[in-house]
Design a protein around this nucleic acid. Structure first.
Lengths: 230, 230
DNA sequence: TAGTGGTCTAGACCACCCC
DNA sequence: GGGTGGTCTAGACCACTAA
């Protein structure tokens, strides 16, 4: 081995774990020792271990040292796709359609979910996303006009609110929920599904400095699967 | 500001983006220049930018430089919970029940999914996980006995296969899929749901050096939501 | 081929917190 | 208190690739 890089160190650690030389819960050598053993700088060991912590393999505490996680709760990363890109990546033609556009005071359920004051005006949008001619996703979108006033002047006839927001409005925090829901007649009609079909559903809320920007509920096409790797 | 740390650099970059000084698609200064501007070492800038790439905010190419991602595909991380821990975290009592245990040659659909040879023996397990007395998850588990022969001698009467595997069998790769399915009568009975109810479903496959270890399909309780943050 | 990021080093000081 | 990780520095060389 000519040079020991941080990737070599990561592989070394992982292989020791797989060989059960460092079983779950056990302690690893400290950074200085391991640097000597492997013949590299301490910073190299440090980076390797830091990344393994990010990946959920190790745990570190000052003074206590570095240990193999007892229950290796691996972390998975997934990227939230822009729907146009997801569809086009699969070789289909993306088509967007605005179904409804409406300005109103936020209904109660929305106000409480987003901590909005009473009589807060919101822009409601319903949109369909198609892959070729097949329905792909129904988007139920609410935009807080107090936070994003210039959304009111945008038509959303050809560009979807997701893409528009992503380019126009930055955010600081957000949450994402996934669940399964039975298709209401309304949803079923748009997605061309039998009533009560199981629909993969995603709800997204985003915030900019403690002010809510938008809430969206997305209903995916039949048999949609979200995939990620470990 | 006495010292500029990599976190300060990250915040600085993010705030420039939020102020639209560096809009999506635009180029940032190179590492050396930014180090001079902010008065810190190049390595500090480098780490800050590297983490922002991991978070899906920036894109970097050698020679071309660093840019704000045009479509900021934020990445979300979620931890795959050990089900016992998830239930106990919510203050409920975890209970496990083995419903079925069976050894057989892998059925065709499984063989093709896992690239198993013909007549490959597998261990099939059906398990229920309860939160208190309420059903929480039905687990349909298949373990490749060629890869994990000693699973055959383990009873799985009190310890679930997930926890057992996590501690006994390391893996190198895996995939995770989420979807929504309609409850079959069988699933509905175990989860105490109406027939055809929408069920949040997760499928997990893990590999150790190109050999499949296990495949599991998990059916979650009614109204289960998987949550993550951005 | 020149400019940019990617990585490594050796040393240093600091912050945390278990013993 | 002392051992451990957390971070920063200044400099160096390398690897990639757009121009």
């Amino acid at each position: 081995m000519i040079r020991t890089g941080y990737k070599d160190v990561k592989n070394h650690i992982l292989s020791q774990i797989r060989k059960n030389i460092w079983p779950p819960g056990s302690s690893l050598p400290n950074e200085v020792d391991m640097a000597v053993t492997l013949g590299c700088a301490r910073a190299t060991i440090s980076r390797a271990m830091r990344e393994l912590v990010d990946e959920g393999v190790l745990e570190r505490k000052r003074k206590a040292g570095t240990k193999v996680k007892a229950s290796p709760t691996r972390r998975a990363q997934f990227t939230i796709p822009i729907i146009r890109e997801e569809i086009e990546k699969n070789g289909a033609t993306y088509r967007y359609d605005l179904v409804k556009r409406n300005i109103l005071d936020a209904p109660d359920w929305l106000s409480s979910r987003l901590s909005l004051p009473k009589y807060n005006r919101v822009l409601q949008l319903r949109c369909m996303h198609y892959a070729g001619n097949a329905p792909y996703q129904l988007e139920d979108r609410w935009i807080n006009l107090s936070a994003v006033p210039h959304a009111e002047t945008f038509a959303f006839k050809t560009l979807g609110p997701n893409e528009w927001l992503v380019k126009e409005v930055p955010f600081t925090d957000g949450s994402l929920e996934f669940s399964a829901t039975n298709a209401t007649p309304y949803v079923a009609a748009f997605l061309n599904l039998p009533e009560n079909a199981a629909v993969f559903t995603s709800e997204r809320t985003t915030w900019l400095n403690n002010q809510n920007v938008t809430y969206a509920k997305l209903y995916f096409k039949r048999d949609y699967k979200m995939t990620t790797f470990l």
